[in-house]
Design a binder for these strands. Structure first.
Lengths: 294, 294
DNA sequence: AAACATGATGCCTTCCAGGTATCAAATGAT
DNA sequence: ATCATTTGATACCTGGAAGGCATCATGTTT
């Protein structure tokens, strides 16, 4: 195999059509350059330059080999640059998982911010429930998750992105909309309830069970996605507890009523990542976002 | 700049994920391979492989650098093959000039033959009068010409491709078409004549002047292209001497009558090339066609 | 705890690339 | 015609780099 030095030598001679000047350009003397070209021609197996004692000319084979040589040199010069960009996190690919509910609120601004901080990084988005995200982070299929607790603090590091209160979604025209005050547990104890799945939407389920007194007897549906929930409310199947950002969905036929109390029923969205970071783009992102990395 | 050996070493390690096995594959021992990779990483300016004492893994930068390295190696392996193909004339580009008249007869079969002998050679065709072809052959803008004498036998070598007789083109229904014998000079001494240009179509002009007695007083048009000539005949502007292959033009309203005599009025088409051949594709073509190369 | 696996390091030798001096051949000037 | 000039090729030498062998360092397995 030939060497890059030989290629550079050939390109210089092909451009100067003069061994002496080419050698000067390469900061070397003429004799080794002559030998370089001879060796290259031997390796390539074809005469590339036609030279008599007065002038140097490219052969036809030399003309096309010159193109290939230039392409090789360009590629060889670009490759380390690309590698360094990726190592520094300025380029590459970031795979982000998000829960459907996080899409309403934080995803848009976050992507906007990403394109400012790491503009050359491709972002791959996947809608996944929290459990699947954690799994992806473990296997390395995911770099960053936008999900809700609980998760293993040993394995994962996180940053609280967003905290919002729960509201009660009711069909338009429902009697409760006439109340001029926040909703209390008393108000919905008779209402048919659309509830979160205990397995698929464990975070919401746990939160509601923990902070809002309600009767399981009232539960008429069990679903895992906020969007489904709000749609069912619009269809007058019952009322539901949803995060405040669900108001952004813009579904007609639903109204959202504040809940009295105010503290315990707050839901959190975290950015979560594996403490064993291998993706330089993620590293750079976290550094630039100044997330605490305890 | 890194070397191809370093790239090959990196590719082997990246594929085996094991220095020992990679070294074996490369027919070398493990220590120099380790150093090779270290040097490559230093040159590239990024960690490409993450290695502890138990396993080897590609970093993100390493993954993309691996692709670039493979591309480089593939390109480097292909380049000499292409160069050799061109040097041997099995590939490349052949620029052929032809006169309009030669296009009727020989060009089709010749191109057919070219695609058999040198299938990977691109053929660039240009319609040029003989003088322009000779000029192109001198400057190297043309590799082969299909033209008519005269030309300098010192500079150019040639091969007679085709010899055909001249015929008289007359409008359909012309009285001469009723003759049951070949045409003699007597027959057209009163006919209006469409003549070849003395400068632009010197070969035909000289030939006609030399071999066919006619009166300049009868000349009604002077043109340089056979096609124009035949079209004017069809428009009943007169009669014209054209090579036999003009019958292949398929222009309606024209008939072609044989001329008595038979020998002197033959026209020749030659393949002509510069004796200083630089294009390997031409060299190969001539060899394979078994043209005499005195 | 001992044996094993695996990548890194130290040291030696060989080989190759580059430098200097010079040659060979063709051109051009006196 | 001869001599100086130009320019690529060759001869010979030297320094550095790459590869091999032996060994180390460290983590895993039995």
């Amino acid at each position: 195999m030939f060497t890059f030095d030989q290629l550079a030598g050939f390109i210089a001679v092909a451009e100067e059509l003069h061994f002496g000047r080419a050698a000067e350009r390469l900061n070397m003397t003429q004799p080794p350059l002559s030998r370089q070209i001879q060796k290259l021609e031997k390796i390539v197996g074809a005469e590339l330059l036609e030279r008599d004692n007065r002038k140097v000319e490219l052969t036809h084979a030399g003309q096309t080999f010159l193109e290939e040589a230039r392409r090789l040199m360009a590629l060889a010069e670009r490759a380390p640059v690309t590698a360094r960009r990726i190592a520094s996190g300025r380029s590459g690919m970031l795979r982000i998982g998000f829960t459907a509910a996080s899409g309403f609120s934080i995803l848009g601004p976050l992507l906007e911010e990403l394109s400012q901080i790491i503009p050359d990084v491709d972002v791959d988005l996947q809608e996944l429930v929290t459990g699947e995200q954690l799994n992806g982070l473990l296997t390395g299929e995911l770099d960053l998750g936008l999900a809700r607790p609980p998760f293993d603090k040993e394995t994962f590091d996180s940053h609280l992105l967003y905290r919002e209160s729960m509201v009660l979604a009711v069909p338009s025209g429902h009697p409760l909309t006439l109340l001029a005050r926040d909703i209390s547990p008393e108000d919905f104890k008779e209402e048919p309830l659309i509830m979160h799945s205990a397995t698929q939407a464990r975070y919401f389920y746990d939160l509601v069970v923990r902070t809002l007194p309600f009767s399981h007897a009232n539960v008429v549906h069990t679903v895992s996605q906020i969007l489904t929930m709000v749609s069912l409310v619009a269809a007058k199947r019952g009322v539901a507890f949803v995060p405040h950002s669900a108001t952004l969905l813009g579904i007609k036929g639903v109204e959202f009523l504040p809940l009295a109390g105010g503290d315990g029923e707050q839901v959190e969205l975290h950015a979560i990542w594996n403490r064993r970071i291998t993706n330089p783009a993620l590293e750079r992102l976290l550094r630039d976002l100044e997330f605490a990395m305890e």
